[in-house]
Design a protein around this nucleic acid. Sequence first.
DNA 1: ATGCCAGTATTTTACTGA
Length: 259
Amino acid sequence: MKFATWNVNSLRVRLPQVLDWLETHPVDVLCLQELKLPQDKFPLDAFKELGYQAQWAGQPTYNGVALISKTEGTEVQRNIPGFEDHQQRLIAATYPSSAGPIRVISAYCPNGQDLDSDKYIYKLNWFAALHDWLQEQLEQYPLLAILGDYNVAPTDLDVHDPKKWEGKVHVSAPERAAWQKLIDLGLHDAYRLFDQDSPGFSWWDYRRGAFRRDAGLRIDHALVSNALKPHSQACYVDKDPRSNEQPSDHTPVIVQFNL
DNA sequence: ATGCCAGTATTTTACTGA
């Protein structure tokens, strides 16, 4: 099995690229973020024509997440239970595998904007709520993967210019502590389970020729549970879509399992 | 310190992103 995550920064604009990518890179579940689509504008038929099912949580203008899958997910959960949130940032569903049901989560963690912003407080609160809910989910679903745009670069290895980013949003100590709390639940950063010959950047700023200079961040991640870890076979970034005409500023991250 | 670029909504800019 393969799962992937891709922040598409508007599914309306990026739909042809997503369909092209799925045709050439079939996966069992593709987690999308930043649909920027109202719930009733999701292009379900386009995915069905490719043989995929889809479940999503949309809202106008901002946010929005989806699970595109070969088989339709069950036990679908939108947003974090008990966490009052008008922003559509999370969707979870269960899929069959040879080792039993796997819980897959597509997450668009808040950006935070700046350390002195209300949005930064919201980001930390969101991570705290995610942590508590994941703890319950892991008890219920030992095989669990949560993929998405975390808007956190876990270490300086994940930052093109750590000095320039020092203390800023995406790398600040409280954000990295929130990430570590997720890891401490018994989750593993799939990219770091394997020898890598690239920093694994998954996002490059549209400005200043950042992609050409490889001035990126590794902020899109796949976390796998203790029980799923031994089934993990590879994790890699596909940089190609970042070279497309009219690209998203993020590119897909893929994790492969022997299931 | 700010805009650089991109998308959206409304518009002749503002907001957000990261």
